[in-house]
């Protein structure tokens, strides 16, 4: 009896709204955060809004802060017409190239560094530790430093103007190897031993146990690497002379170069549209994988 009387009382207590307490400190924190968000988003907003107006409006009235009426036209032209500001390619081709580069870069790096770390941590071969440090030392030699020899090698292999030449020289990754190495070292030895007793060979252990356990690591590294790959600038611009292989980042550079050189009525709206298009995929990747990433963190297995 006592228990059943208890329930409504408790429900009432729960229903009573907790007093909202907003201290000056919280208010200040929020103000700073909101200001920061506005500060970061405003240029994007202006670029997006301006891209929906016609060239004439932009020329006459300057930057725009609200939707215009030529959005479909502009984006259609940028995406599908050659010979606009982007000369011989469309934004669609360039987005495709960037996608290949971003995915190839991220996936290549993950595969290479996972397998390298696997070899270093789980196989007893002499010089494993020195090898690891040699890999680690390559951090001191980023692509920018070794760009001339890299170009030589790729050129002599006849890989200029190819996806292979674009991606492969970029995928060696000391940082990725390091992160995976640290992660594998934290996996309890008993898991390996149990798997060995269960008849799993080296490949099965890697695929069935290590890879699934590294999911969250993979997601994190994928996010970072995709964005880095997508934003690659120096290597693609040196590597590619054929505009069918231009990435969107190169495309943006070309557009602004055309604008700067002057000529007829500058097509600012197309430049803005191209910028917006270039930002979208990395943003989507971050948004999509972030949820996955956090979910993985919350499950906290191992």
């Amino acid at each position: 009896m006592a228990a059943s009387e208890d329930i409504p009382a408790r429900a009432a207590a729960a229903a009573r709204p907790r007093r909202l307490r907003i201290s000056g400190r919280t208010l200040a924190n929020h103000a700073i955060l909101i200001l920061g968000a506005v500060f970061l988003c405003a240029p994007l907003w202006i670029a997006f809004m301006s891209s929906t107006h016609s060239a004439e409006t932009l020329y006459r009235e300057g930057l725009q802060f609200w939707f215009g009426d030529s959005m479909l036209e502009t984006y259609g032209a940028v995406m599908f017409d050659t010979g606009g500001v982007t000369k011989n390619t469309t934004a669609l081709t360039m987005l495709g190239n960037s996608m290949v580069l971003g995915l190839g870069f991220a996936i290549g790096k993950i595969v290479i560094s996972m397998t390298a770390a696997y070899a270093i941590v789980y196989f007893r071969f002499r010089l494993a530790t020195p090898f690891f440090w040699v890999i680690f030392l390559t951090l001191l030699l980023p692509l920018e430093v070794r760009i001339v020899p890299s170009y030589e090698v790729v050129a002599s292999l006849g890989l200029l103007n190819s996806y292979t030449g674009l991606i492969v020289p970029l995928i060696a990754s000391a940082t990725g190897t390091f992160f995976f190495r640290q992660f594998y070292k934290s996996v309890p030895d008993e898991l390996l031993e149990a798997a060995r007793l269960d008849g799993a060979g080296p490949l099965r252990f890697f695929l069935d146990i290590l890879v699934p356990l590294s999911r969250t690591m993979v997601a994190a590294i994928f996010i970072i690497m995709f964005v880095v790959g997508w934003n690659q600038y120096l290597w693609p611009i040196i590597m590619t002379t054929d505009d069918q292989l231009y990435t969107i980042v190169i495309g943006i550079k070309q557009v602004y170069q055309v604008l700067a050189e002057g000529g007829e009525l500058p097509q600012y709206q197309e430049a803005f549209a191209l910028t917006i298009l270039a930002i979208l995929p990395p943003v989507l990747v971050v948004l999509f994988f972030q949820r996955w990433f956090i979910k993985g963190l919350l499950e906290s297995e191992k």
Partner: peptide, 29 residues
């Protein structure tokens, strides 16, 4: 090799595969 000795071991910390269901854990071998 351990797998070919046809023995089974129970570890102090159990060493269950954290990402596999109970069924899969038992079935893996």
């Amino acid at each position: 090799s351990p797998a070919d000795r046809d023995i089974a071991m129970v570890f102090q910390n159990y060493a269950l595969y954290p990402h596999m269901s109970v069924f899969k854990n038992m079935a893996y071998g």
